[in-house]
Design a binder for these strands. Structure first.
Length: 260
DNA sequence: ATGACCTGTTTAACAGGA
C-alpha cells in the first residue's frame, strides 16, 4: 500500500500537475495540503475519474486539506480536536479498510508560525500541543496510523542546507523542535529517517533566490507512523522530480510503501 | 548578473506563505 503526502499550493493552479503525478505514481492514498479552495469547488470528479474516493476539508483562499483513496473510506473526520474556536482547515482524518485490516490516515497542514513575534507563533505551538494530545488518543487504538503532511518543522540541522540562515525562524526554533520531539516521543517513527541515513534530503524549495537550482531546501513534509504501521514499512521516497515541472508547487510529494 | 517568487482574491494591490 502506497501512501503519499503533498502540499500542492493551490488546487486550481496545480490540478494538471497533480493529475499527471497521480497517473505516474499511482498512490493508493494521497494526502493533499494547501488546496486553497472551499470544499464545493474542489475538483473531486477529476480525481474520481482516476479511480479515487475523495474527502475534502476546505476553506476559502487559504489552507485546506484533502485525502484521495483508491479504497473506500470507513470514516472521515475533519478538524483537529481541542479548540472549537479554530476555524482554519488544517486537519482531516480517515479510516481506510484494506484486506489486512484498517489503516488510519491523517492529512496535516501544521501552521507556519511566522513571524515569531506575532500571534501566529503561539497558535502554532498550541496547534502542536493539540496534535500531541490527539496523537496520544489515536496511539491508544494500537492500530496502523499514518500522520502525514506539511509539519512546517525542520527537525534537525541535517534537514536544511544552511541551518544558520534559519536560526530564530518558526520552523527551526528550539520551542518548535521540542514540540516536534514531544510528538515523536509518544512512539511515532519518522518514516524517512527510518529508511534513510543520508543528510540534506529536502521536500521544499522556496520559489525565491534560486533555491531549487542551488538545492537550497528544507525537509518539512513528514510521515509519522505508529508502531503497527512501522512494522510493515518497506520504503520511503521523495519525488523531487515534480519540482522541475512547469508551474510546480514549492513542495514535492513524499510517500511510503507499507506491506499491507 | 550568483539571484529577480507564487497563489488567490475585492482583478489592483495585498495577504500569506516558508
Amino acid at each position: 500500500m502506497k501512501i503519499a503526502t503533498w502540499n500542492i499550493n493551490g488546487i486550481k493552479a496545480r490540478i494538471d500537475n497533480v493529475e499527471k503525478w497521480l497517473e505516474q505514481a499511482q498512490p493508493d492514498v494521497a494526502c493533499l495540503q494547501e488546496i486553497k479552495s472551499v470544499s464545493e469547488n474542489f475538483p473531486s470528479e477529476r480525481f474520481e475519474s482516476l479511480g479515487y474516493n475523495v474527502a475534502v476539508h476546505g476553506q476559502k483562499s487559504f489552507n485546506g486539506v484533502a485525502i484521495l483513496s483508491k479504497l473506500p473510506f470507513d470514516e472521515v473526520t475533519p478538524g483537529l480536536p481541542g479548540d472549537d474556536t479554530d476555524e482554519q482547515a488544517r486537519y482531516l482524518e480517515a479510516v481506510i479498510s484494506t484486506a489486512d485490516g484498517a489503516v488510519r490516515v491523517a492529512a496535516i497542514y501544521l501552521p507556519n508560525g511566522n513571524p515569531v513575534e506575532s500571534d501566529k507563533y503561539p497558535y502554532k505551538l498550541a496547534w502542536m500541543a493539540r496534535l500531541e494530545d490527539h496523537a496520544r488518543t489515536l496511539l491508544d487504538y494500537e492500530e496502523p496510523l499514518v500522520l502525514a503532511g506539511d509539519y512546517n518543522v525542520v527537525p534537525t540541522d541535517e534537514d536544511v542546507h544552511d541551518s544558520g540562515a534559519w536560526t530564530g525562524d518558526a520552523l527551526f526554533r528550539p520551542e518548535t523542535h521540542a514540540a516536534f520531539r514531544s510528538i515523536n516521543h509518544l512512539g511515532l517513527t519518522d518514516a524517512f529517517r527510518a529508511c534513510h541515513g543520508e543528510s540534506h534530503r529536502y521536500t521544499f524549495w522556496d520559489y525565491q533566490a534560486g533555491a531549487w537550482p542551488k538545492d537550497n531546501g528544507i525537509r518539512i513534509d513528514h510521515l509519522l507512523l505508529s508502531a503497527q504501521a512501522t512494522d510493515t514499512l518497506k520504503s520511503c521516497t521523495i519525488d523531487r522530480f515534480t519540482r522541475g515541472w512547469e508551474r510546480p508547487s514549492d513542495h514535492v510529494p513524499i510517500w511510503i510503501e507499507l506491506d499491507v
